[in-house]
Each structure stands twice: as C-alpha cells, then as structure tokens.
Design a protein around this nucleic acid. Structure first.
Lengths: 172, 172
DNA sequence: AATGAAAAATAAGATACCTTAAGAAATTAC
DNA sequence: GTAATTTCTTAAGGTATCTTATTTTTCATT
C-alpha cells in the first residue's frame, strides 16, 4: 500500500476511542505498537469484536471509509498504542494509486477476504469450543496477551461460557 | 475483471458438482443463468452454505484458486445453469493483469470483503430470526427461488427451525 | 391423474449456550 | 501495601436452537 506517512505517528492510551459506531470513518490506523479493536454494539448493548489489530495491522471500517456511510463498528485502543493515521482524502479513491500500489491493495483485500470467509465457515459449522481452539492456533500471541472477555467476544460467546470451555479443556 | 472468454460457456445440470471439497480449485465460474452454491460439509456431515451465485455472480474457492491449497468448500449447481469457466492458469497470477483489470479486481475484492464482514457481524450479534429477515431484504429474489433448506443452511440454522421462524413471523 | 420422491411443517424432548448472581483472583490506583 | 476496580470463576436456572420422528405438502415422472 502507499507508503505510510511517518509524520502521522500518534500515541493513544488504552481505552481511547478512535472511531465511534455510527460515525463516518475519516481515517484508517496502522498499528506500530500496542493493539486496537473494532467492535459492534448490538441492540441489547452487547459488544461483538470484529477484529483485533496488533503490531503491523491496519484497521478501519472499510465500508464507512470507502463509501462514506455510517460505520457499523467502533474502533478503540485496548492497549497503549503507537499508530500511523491514514487519512481518507488520500486513500479513498482507488484510482489515485499507481499500479504497484493497487496490486498490493488487491492482494491485501484478497487475503483479508480469504480470512473473513474462513471465519464465516467457523461461525456456521464449528462449536464454540472448536472456535476457541482455532483462535488459539491462529493467534497464539493474542491468547496470552488479551483478556478472556475480549477473546470471548471475538469468537462469539459470553465470558462466562468461555471460562467454562477453558476449564473443560484443562480437565482433559 | 479480464474479459470473459465467451468460448468457455458450458451448461451444467442441477446437482452437478464443479468442485469437490478438498480438491484444488483450477477454475472459477461466472454464472450466466441459473444458480450455483459453495458449501462446506462439517465433521458431522452437515452442509453449510458459504455463497449463492445466481446470474452475473462469480464463484470459486478463492483461497484454493489463489494459493493452490485444498478447498474448504465444494461447488455445485442448484439449478440448471449456463456458466463461463475461468481457468486458473490465466487468473491466478495477479501481476498478469493491466492496471484497469487490477483496479477492477481490487474493487471486487473490497466489496466482497465488506459483504463478508457484514455477514460476520450478523452471525455474531443477530438472532436467527433477524438473520433470516436480513436475508430476505438483501436477497429478495433468492428467497422466492431457493428451497427453504438452502436458505436455512446459509443463515446457519436447521430447516426445521427456519420453518418455525417463518411460522412465527407469519403469525405476527 | 396416479405414483413416487423431495421438501416443508409440526411437535416433543435434548443440548449448547446465555443470564444472573455471587465470590475469588488479579490488576490498578493511591 | 492496602483499597478499589476489573477480571475471572463457578453455579443454577433459562432460552434459543437442535435432534429425531411423523405427517403433510409440493414437485417431478410416468
């Protein structure tokens, strides 16, 4: 992707909100250190985590960023983080890029799409226990680093139930 | 995307399998008429539908097609269909394309990614009834056209339970 | 039209996962 | 280093969804 403007490095504290659900995303965030999350709050007030973005990950609400529609997710720092802020004015119009940039973007979108489709298959066909095991295998470092309740939210169960799952796995 | 080779038009019957789960995808399929589905069979033998591809949709296992790994899904005609067969040899190496093609591909991947992410949010946060209502709004023509059990599989419930949901909605 | 096959509806009992609530453990703040 | 706050664990009861089985309806074939 277009080289990141190193002048836009910012430090954000744990808990700081970078995008509110329902607002229009003006920025994307490339994480240099720390970790962000994107999440949707449903009608009953429960949080559901779409994505974690630790070091070297890029995070935004792609639909909102691209199409200037209200975002379905919020974005928040879950650790103190250093991030590069990518502004929409430069990145939104895909035809502003040269061929090399676009190829890189296409490959990133393609890889993200493959990963999202795998997650859909897991949500459709695997039990919560299996999804948790898959998560530990796919993101071994995050399992150490993130509180249980965030992992529970990502795999789609309550923290209480993930706690049960862990105990059940430990007793095997 | 690279213009479709009109010489590769084929007719497939309902029930014909174009890709078996576990095989490596050599082709993508652009549907001119009819409808295909991609689906994963889980360890207990249940089918889970990833995608429907009616007219003008392109379908394949992107991971398998791109990276030559075993496919997680199978592809099958659910109606008699006319399809254009796109062979991997032409399409796999993204650097074979000119800038216009790549831009188009990037946009397609991006739009697919946005759609997949919406589906993930639905699976994480909405009830089965809400997911069914969302499906009827997103794909009104497919609701008319497809058997209930395929829709049930797509939204992630059993046909029996979707039947209950429909009755419940009708009685409102 | 009659037959057979597939799809859908219905219902009862089972299970995965959730809700609520309380206490224990870990982390943060002063 | 103690208090305060947050996170995690545990447990009991509840709900959404599944499983199995039977019947009814729809669809395809002769």
């Amino acid at each position: 992707m277009k080289s990141i403007d190193l002048n836009n490095l910012e430090t954000v504290e744990k808990g700081q909100i970078l995008l509110k659900q329902g607002e229009i995303a003006k920025y994307g965030y490339f994480v240099k250190s720390g970790c962000l999350k994107s999440y949707a709050i449903d009608s009953s007030g429960k949080e559901h985590i779409m994505q974690f973005a630790p070091e070297d990950w890029l995070i935004t609400d792609l639909d909102s960023f691209t199409n200037q529609v209200p975002s379905q997710v919020g974005i928040e720092a879950i650790e103190e983080s250093e991030i590069f802020v990518l502004s929409r004015s430069e990145y939104s119009d895909i035809t502003n890029f040269d061929e090399e940039d676009i190829t890189e973007m296409a490959i990133k979108f393609r890889n993200n799409l493959i990963a999202s489709n795998k997650r859909i298959i897991g949500l459709l066909s695997a039990t919560a226990e299996q999804r948790y095991i898959d998560f530990t295998e796919t993101y071994p470092t995050l399992v150490q680093r993130l509180p249980l309740k965030l992992i529970a939210s990502y795999i789609g169960v309550t923290p209480e139930y993930l706690s049960d799952i862990r105990r059940k796995i430990a007793h095997k």
